[in-house]
Amino acid sequence: MKKTIEEKRQNVLEVATKLFAEKGYEATTMAEIAKFANVGFGTVATYFENKENLLLKCVEEPMTDFLEKALSFKTQPNDYKEEINQMTLHHFKLFSEKRLYLLLLIHVTSQWEKYMKPYLIANKAARELSDKIELLIQNGQREGKIAEANPNILAISYVSVLLGLFLSNTDQFSENVIKLYAENATRLFGLQ
């Protein structure tokens, strides 16, 4: 069956994300991306103009869906313990599934001077996630469900644990291991 233009374009994005994440932007060529995506070099250039724009699209296009999923928790739930348990499990599963994408985001943010446009997208998303978690913490503290602590530092600590786990381990985690890590992460919130 012949692939549609959109399917070919999506395949190029996925291959580029994988190569940029694993090898780095500088070490990855457009020709290599074309080869692994099983398309001509001209096809990649037609879809994305140049490597810089391709990197931008690799960060930008998946971000909407990723962020929507990451932000799918309530900041004023009826049951804070249940909401935080579900949120952490959801986050750990999501971050596990999107590990290559996260590696790309770390690559971009660690060299932000070189990749300003993709960095701004990644930074804005991280701030949105951290801000919403901070709001959840503030609301929980007001209701006496979450222990007193600096909500901003707690939110950033939680996001750092998420990123650190999946970026410092090359292993694919089983569902049970992900569940254990998520359960431990809920302790950061000091649930009452």
Score class of each variant (00 low, 15 high):
T46E: 04
H107G: 08
E68V: 06
L188Y: 09
S96P: 01
G140F: 07
N50H: 13
L55H: 04
F189G: 00
K51R: 09
G42K: 01
A125D: 08
K57F: 02
T28D: 01
G40P: 07
Y158D: 00
L89N: 13
T43Q: 12
M1Y: 12
I133Q: 04
A70Y: 13
A182T: 00
L56A: 01
L19A: 07
T109K: 05
G164C: 05
I146F: 03
P118F: 06
K57C: 01
S96L: 03
H90V: 01
F166V: 14
V39L: 04
L103K: 10
F166D: 02
P62H: 06
K98R: 11
I137E: 06
E60F: 11
L120Y: 09
E52M: 06
E6A: 14
G24S: 08
V159Q: 10
K35E: 14
G40T: 05
K114F: 10
A125V: 03
S130M: 06
R187N: 15
L154M: 07
L100M: 14
I121H: 00
S96W: 00
F166R: 08
F66E: 02
V108R: 00
T43S: 12
S157A: 10
N169L: 08
K8P: 09
R99K: 13
T88P: 12
S174Y: 08
Q138K: 09
Y80M: 07
